[in-house]
Simulated assay, not measured.
Amino acid sequence: MTDLAAALASAWREHRAIASAAWTDSVGDAAQAYAVQDRVAQALGWFGSAAPGHWKSGGPSRDAVLTHAPLPPAGVRASPASFAGMHFNAPGIESEVALRLCEPVTPERAATLTPETAAALIDAMTVSIEIVDSRWKDPAQATALLRLADQQSHGALVLGAWVPYAARDWAAQVCETRIGGSAPELRRGTHPMGDPAWLLPVWLRHVTQGGATVPSGTVVTTGSWVGVLPVHEGDTVVVEFPGIGRAEARL
């Protein structure tokens, strides 16, 4: 794990991608992948002694094992955001809704949460655009554990204006994504878990499992409504969730 963390930290630092084949057997389970995440963050000095302020969490369905990653603060920007001059290896984008905690969450509190009770911990939501990127040259060939070790293929995050959180008819919620001059991608009710807040108990139990308390104001982005859409340098991406807001990013 030490060698893998060093290789990924170098790839982040030097803005390059590395071949995954040599590392296929270097991560045996999710616990080891999360340990690599932590070592990469420490090597790059992302958080210092502070708790991560932004996370990604999600999965393909409620029946799947959800995955999580803390996000480097330098890549988190308010909409409209420009990433001109920031290097990405092979970026894509995900259209998401992010949620913000209104109070600290201890391990004891996290252990008691259900999807129904966890929503009370959220005071605000916003439209988010995750720029997905990989330190693997061949991300489609990299194992799921290698992608997890690589901060779950995170590149950067854009956050729109915050609005008060309220339960919505998520099955009827529209998501509109526009990339450059292409026709808009329209989705309705396509959040993989049906409700972005559903994952909160799983995510909070993950973050607190070492005994840490998650601070008030911590933000989690909750999974893509559109899968991963390809983007290129110079593209402008606009994502809108009617009734919630919009976010804009230029690569």
Score class of each variant (00 low, 15 high):
Leu4Arg: 03
Ala5Thr: 10
Ala6His: 01
Ala9Asn: 07
Arg16Val: 13
Ala17Leu: 02
Ala19Asn: 12
Ala19Ile: 04
Ser20Pro: 03
Ala21His: 13
Thr24Phe: 07
Thr24Pro: 00
Asp25Ser: 14
Gly28Cys: 09
Gly28Lys: 12
Ala31Pro: 00
Gln37Ile: 10
Val40Met: 05
Leu44Lys: 02
Trp46Phe: 11
Gly48Phe: 07
Ala51Pro: 08
Ala51His: 14
Trp55His: 11
Lys56His: 01
Pro60Met: 15
Pro60His: 12
Leu71Ile: 05
Ala74Cys: 03
Val76Cys: 00
Ser82Trp: 05
Phe88Cys: 08
Asn89Cys: 13
Asn89Thr: 12
Ala90Val: 04
Pro91Cys: 07
Gly92Tyr: 04
Glu94Val: 07
Glu94Met: 09
Val97Ser: 04
Thr112Glu: 13
Leu113Trp: 08
Thr114Pro: 07
Glu116Tyr: 09
Glu116Ser: 14
Thr126Asn: 02
Ile129Met: 05
Ile131Pro: 08
Lys137Leu: 15
Gln141Gly: 15
Ala142Gln: 02
Ala142Ile: 05
Leu146Ala: 11
Leu146Arg: 05
Arg147Lys: 15
Gln151Asn: 10
Gly155His: 01
Trp162Gln: 11
Trp162Phe: 12
Val163Lys: 12
Pro164Cys: 06
Pro164Met: 08
Ala167Lys: 10
Arg168Cys: 06
Asp169Ile: 12
Trp170Asp: 07
Ile179Cys: 07
Gly180Pro: 01
Glu185Gln: 14
Arg187Gly: 04
Gly194His: 05
Ala197Met: 06
Ala197Val: 14
Trp198Tyr: 15
Leu199Cys: 11
Arg205Asp: 08
Val207Pro: 01
Thr208Asp: 01
Ala212Arg: 11
Thr213Glu: 11
Val214Ala: 07
Val219Arg: 00
Thr222Glu: 01
Val226Ile: 14
Asp235Ala: 12
Pro242Ala: 07
Ile244Thr: 03
Arg246Trp: 11
Ala247Pro: 04
